[in-house]
């Protein structure tokens, strides 16, 4: 009986964890992202070091990503004080293909946090670097630039940010 459980565990571990955590791990340094904002200026993830950063990978063609934006907006407003103190930031990384769609999406959804993209859709090297196999996808990067959480959403996401920021006080 025991070998059966061990085998089941191994199968689950190998195949179950295969999806998103192939190339990034909690506690490891977040791969650098240096992409253009809509105005063309390059913004680097590493320039936000010192703040807890929620990196939100999204696209205007991804319906669940679009649906999640109002929730992110609530988080951004709720922790506005931390944003102003440089302790928290959201960084939107878009996998859009057309600049026009990307810009209209930002405008329509009234997104106020920084947005970057290489407009390369699923061929973006960022998707490779983070092993993204589906959207929506996010990572939380801590003050030192290490990955603190991978792909958490909803209440889990809010609780994580809240706990982290309040513990840092």
């Amino acid at each position: 009986m025991k070998p059966f459980f061990i085998l089941t565990f191994c199968v689950f571990f190998v195949f179950g964890s295969r999806a998103q955590e192939k190339t990034i791990l909690k506690g490891s340094p977040a791969p650098e992202i240096a992409l253009a904002q809509p105005d063309g200026k390059i913004l680097k993830l590493s320039s936000l070091k010192g703040a807890l950063v929620l990196v939100d990978f999204w696209a205007t063609w991804c319906a669940p990503c679009v649906q999640e934006q109002p929730e992110l907006k609530k988080i951004y407003q709720q922790y506005d004080k931390y944003v102003k103190e440089g302790k928290f930031q959201i960084l939107g990384v878009s996998l859009d293909r057309k600049k026009e769609h990307w810009e209209k999406g930002i405008e329509r959804l009234k997104i106020t946090w920084p947005q970057i993209s290489d407009l390369k859709y699923w061929t973006s090297p960022v998707a490779d670097a983070y092993g993204i196999e589906g959207l929506p996808f996010n990572v939380i990067v801590d003050e030192k630039g290490n990955i603190a959480a991978i792909n958490i959403h909803g209440t889990q996401l809010v609780n994580f940010i809240d706990r982290h920021l309040k513990n840092k006080k």
């Binding site: 699923w122 061929t123 998707a127 993204i132 196999e133 589906g134």
Partner: peptide, 15 residues
């Protein structure tokens, strides 16, 4: 089944 990255690009199919 999943998306063009997983089911085409990652498999090194012609781009």
């Amino acid at each position: 089944p999943q998306n063009i990255r997983v089911d085409w690009i990652s498999k090194k199919y012609p781009l």
